[in-house]
Amino acid sequence: MATALTRKDFVSDQEVRWCPGCGDYAILAQVQKVMPEFGIPRENIVFISGIGCSSRFPYYMNTYGFHTIHGRAPAIATGLKVTRPELDVWVVTGDGDGLSIGGNHLIHCLRRNVDLKILLFNNRIYGLTKGQYSPTSEVGKITKSTPAGSVDYPFNPITVALGAHASFVCRTVDVEQKHLGDMLKRAHAHRGASYIEILQNCNIFNDGAFNELSDKQIKADYQLVLEHGKPLIFGKNRNKGIRMNGQRAEVVELGNGITEKDLVVHDETNLALAFMLANFEPPLPTPIGVFYAVERPTFEEAVNKQLEEAKAKQGPGDLQSLLNRGDTWVVN
């Protein structure tokens, strides 16, 4: 019955109101496309969002949805997931919502490893409030609130998550539909907090922010697709690779005595490697894919286990004996 669902079953009757050309459309389409593959009944799926362009997302999904307040979606989702662990809970947030006003909730829900699928739409700008710089905007960014250029050093969304010891951290791009779909599936299969940074183009206020990664002509030279157990190779002709030179990574060209054996092999369970990859800056390529994925107990499992253990040990709570506990006395 659940497997019979199609993409259409996940499309709500609400008119989608993002700006024409916004990267959010592609993300919505891919989420609706992969949803049926999970085989989960619609009623068991919940999308929770904060505030921002991305946070309109739940209205467009024909599942349960909760469009909440700025930055608080991870906290609200935690309360839901802990008490209803059987539900499939997704959080949709953005660079402002998740890394600025709600940064605290995001890192804490990652460290706790609450089994939430967190989609962080990173467009490096405030779209809904019409174009102020965000915590992921580059230094020098000229926006309405920074006419002389931003002086804030930006967050790297991947290292923020790695720093919180998130158990699943990946990056993808709005227009990379197949890759995006793959990442959604990987994230969904992961037990624990799954964090997907989706580089998303805001064509109104920050058009082309990720051009190198989305432009078909050039992207192969700028994008490094991470695959577990495989050497780090990229380039249009797949002739470039990443080699360690002492403790630093460098780009090398394959051939002339340099073979795949000289290259770094990706290992998703290596936190130090994940940090290094996350910090790649030109001339190094920008990695996309799974940086880090490890299994550790989820928060709601651990919490509910304590509840079960208490019940096994003390029996189901008996209200009257709870109230009557301790020193009591009878007045006649």
């Binding site: 929770i48 909440t68 906290a75 609200i76 935690t78 309360g79 802990v82 008490t83």
Partner: peptide, 8 residues
């Protein structure tokens, strides 16, 4: 917020 989520 978590209480709101739990109530939901």
């Amino acid at each position: 917020s978590a209480a709101v989520g739990a109530a939901f």
